[in-house]
């Protein structure tokens, strides 16, 4: 009897009804475009207004005689070429800020990429054991507060060469939040998933890729987000010793030749790039973890 009951149509009935649901929901296109425009306005206008007000306040505040800092008008007057054309090339050392940012990004890519790989692996190992977690966590918590500049002399002494030292400074600044967050994410893997892995006899490598990484992805990516922010923060410190054409060295160089307005422009470039990096990692996190990461 029970078998017959199972085969009866009511069991299969939801199939057609489920298809019907997807049919409506085609919004009026005209309304849609207007909606998007107004949404965009609501998002872009407030920060634009605040920016204008801040620039005006800055202009007024530093307009007086003997003011130490340039006004926005002065920045425009002296450094407009840097703002208007980010990708000019006048010589090997005289290039647009866009090129400089790209050079620095390459350096950050090495340092941060290394920190991401090592950080996730170390975090995964440490997160697996409560004892290791207890032993390592306080040390990491202390190390993560060391500022990038403080690593610089140690790094130079260890590598005796500026290029690897710069990458090491970025690496060592970015790695701590990645390790700490990955370990926390691994500790937070539900026992249910571990049981599934145990019944299936997944080996270490399979467990890492099939259970640990997807399960801990939200944690890992919040660590990577903090890490990428920190590694970009470390770029000025790192490039103070490498020299060359990076944006960090540009600031150091501009300071040494008293081009304050150039520094102002470079700061905006650094800020915007950092913002884009942060959003990029957040976006990748959302894609990889299918919406569960922030």
């Amino acid at each position: 009897m029970s078998i017959v009951a199972l085969k009866s149509p009511p069991e299969n009935a939801p199939k057609p009804s489920a298809k019907v649901i997807s049919l409506p929901a085609t919004p009026n296109p005209q309304l849609g475009v207007r909606r998007i425009l107004s949404d965009l306005g609501a998002m872009v206008l407030p920060p634009l207004v605040v920016l204008m007000v801040l620039l005006a306040v800055w202009q007024v505040a530093f307009s007086g005689e003997g003011s130490g800092l340039p006004t926005p008008a002065a920045v425009w007057a002296e450094s407009a070429d840097l703002i208007l054309d980010p990708f000019y090339v006048y010589g090997t050392q005289d290039i647009g800020l866009g090129w400089r940012v790209l050079t620095s990004l390459e350096r950050v890519a090495y340092g941060f990429g290394l920190a991401a790989v090592v950080g996730v692996l170390v975090g995964a190992v440490i997160g697996q054991s409560a004892l290791m977690m207890r032993g390592f966590d306080p040390i990491f918590q202390v190390l993560r507060t060391v500022p990038p500049l403080a690593w610089l002399p140690i790094s130079l002494a260890a590598f005796m060469d500026s290029r690897p030292s710069a990458i090491f400074v970025i690496f060592i600044t970015a790695i701590w939040p990645i390790i700490i967050n990955t370990a926390a994410g691994v500790r937070a893997i539900p026992q249910d998933y571990r049981n599934v892995a145990a019944v299936l006899r997944l080996n270490q490598v399979e467990f890492f890729w099939k259970i640990m990484v997807p399960s801990a992805a939200p944690y890992i990516f919040s660590g990577l987000r903090i890490g990428v922010g920190l590694s970009w923060l470390a770029i000025v410190a790192a490039e103070m010793l490498t020299g060359g054409v990076g944006i960090g060295f540009f600031i150091w160089d501009a300071w040494n030749s008293s081009r304050l307005t150039d520094i102002m422009v470079a700061l905006v470039y650094i800020g915007v790039t950092g913002f884009v990096l942060d959003r990029l990692v957040a976006f990748i996190g959302r894609v990889v973890s299918r919406g569960t990461a922030a």
Binding site: D192, Y193, S215, R290, T292
Partner: peptide, 9 residues
Amino acid sequence: FQNHSLLPW
């Protein structure tokens, strides 16, 4: 398992 334990991803 009691709470299905399917992998949500």
